[in-house]
Design a protein around this nucleic acid. Structure first.
Lengths: 241, 241
DNA sequence: AAGTGGTCTAGACCACCGC
DNA sequence: CGGTGGTCTAGACCACTTC
């Protein structure tokens, strides 16, 4: 038997998933893939590992399964752009734009009733407030207002121009889930000024509350995107449930 | 051995998931749940079944797991309202409102270049076009324009006032995935009239392309929601990936 | 070192599809 | 009927956390 535990670069089911994805790429939409039993023999793994690999691919929308019939290559098109948890920076880079940021305001202040309730902290407790103008290729794209609870973190070393998620991650905070609410608003005079838009122009107001794996809220962010330059794209899958 | 295959009301892992969820409900957030090995003994199932059950609960945001440490009850709050594939009817009912519909237009017409490309059919091929005003508790909420490809279906029996998804389902078409794009727009005169809003008021324009499990597009829907009465809520999970 | 979740195996039976 | 995916078992070893 070959050495097994040593330097197992990647998980087996991921390697299997990659291999099946590679084969699917060489076939046409709706073509039949080998059966799970064939694949386990060919790739020398157990059936559960094959199933787990295929499960990933189904979730990504790359293949689909029909009960007594088989596994097939899916029609592409929608693939790739599944819903992900992204920062403004990543989001813009993905669209091929260069993001930049102007800090409008940064302050430590007592939490309002509403903010305290949503962050599940005491009203009046310290929160870091950060207001930024986000630009893409030098053009104003969004106005962002972020509230962060203290959480024993030392915000004195905080750099408002750098990536927020990166700094939170460095502080041991990992965002696992976020609730978003999207609303349409007409820009007021101040907002229109910052975004270089006409007063009353339609804009997307996205309010996000981010949570750790344990369901502890760690961020409230309210972002107002220019309506003429920003779409909120997402893919909903019934399988996700 | 007891009879096994007969009348197996529900899947084992679902029953196990329910039982674990019940126990979690009686505990406080961040309380420790029994280990997987304890649960498999207590519930007399294999470990894989326990893991599969817990996997569901993690996806629902009800519990969370930490590698060498254990399984814990999650902080609630966000739970329940995960992203789902819903119709206007379900959506409104979920918000406690009574939906109704006024049909503005219904016609079979040749597909435009753009519609044909998105539905992956020939330009000029027949599509069913349906324009409806959707109301909640009698108040106009949204303007909806739907394009359906022919797909050999007999649209002559089509009832524009009834649920679209129900009729598609009856025709053997199941929507499994949908790509949505959300945009902010200012209402034009005609839209404002139908929605009982001021001209130029901000509104959410949601464009959806629905696909079957095999990735075949079966519907294009463009819905314009009143900005003052409609939020688009969703929960993004990193686990979803 | 003991206990936990994470991965993987080899095998079984069931439910469904197409011939 | 044979082949397919869907569920489930009993056991093993690994990686990580906690003491």
């Amino acid at each position: 038997m070959p050495t097994k535990g040593t330097a197992q670069e990647r998980l087996k089911y991921e390697q299997v998933a990659d291999e099946i994805a590679r084969r699917a790429g060489e076939l046409q939409p709706h073509d039949h893939l080998p059966s799970e039993r064939d694949l386990m023999q060919q790739l020398d793994v157990s059936r559960m590992t094959v199933r787990r690999a295929i499960e990933q691919l189904v979730r990504r929308g790359l293949v689909y399964q029909v009960h007594g019939s088989g596994t097939f290559v899916a029609d592409p098109d929608v693939v790739t752009k599944t819903l992900r948890l992204t920062s403004f920076t990543e989001d813009m880079q993905q669209r091929g734009l260069t993001p930049s940021t102007t800090v409008l305001r940064t302050a430590v202040q007592p939490a309002t009733e509403d903010v305290a309730r949503r962050l599940r902290i005491e009203p009046g407790a310290d929160v870091l407030v950060l207001e930024r103008l986000r630009l893409a290729d030098g053009t104003p794209m969004a106005l962002e207002s972020v509230h962060l609870p203290a959480m024993g973190t030392d915000w004195s070393a905080f750099d408002p121009t750098a990536s927020l998620y990166a700094q939170m991650s460095a502080a041991g905070i990992t965002v696992e889930r976020a609730a978003q609410s999207i609303h349409a608003v007409n820009l007021d005079r101040d907002q229109a000024y910052h975004l270089d838009q006409a007063v009353g122009a339609a804009a997307l107001q996205v309010t996000r509350v981010s949570y750790t794996e344990a369901g502890v809220p760690v961020e409230i962010a309210e972002t107002i995107y220019r309506g003429d330059r920003y779409d909120y794209d997402l893919v909903i899958s019934r399988a996700a449930q």
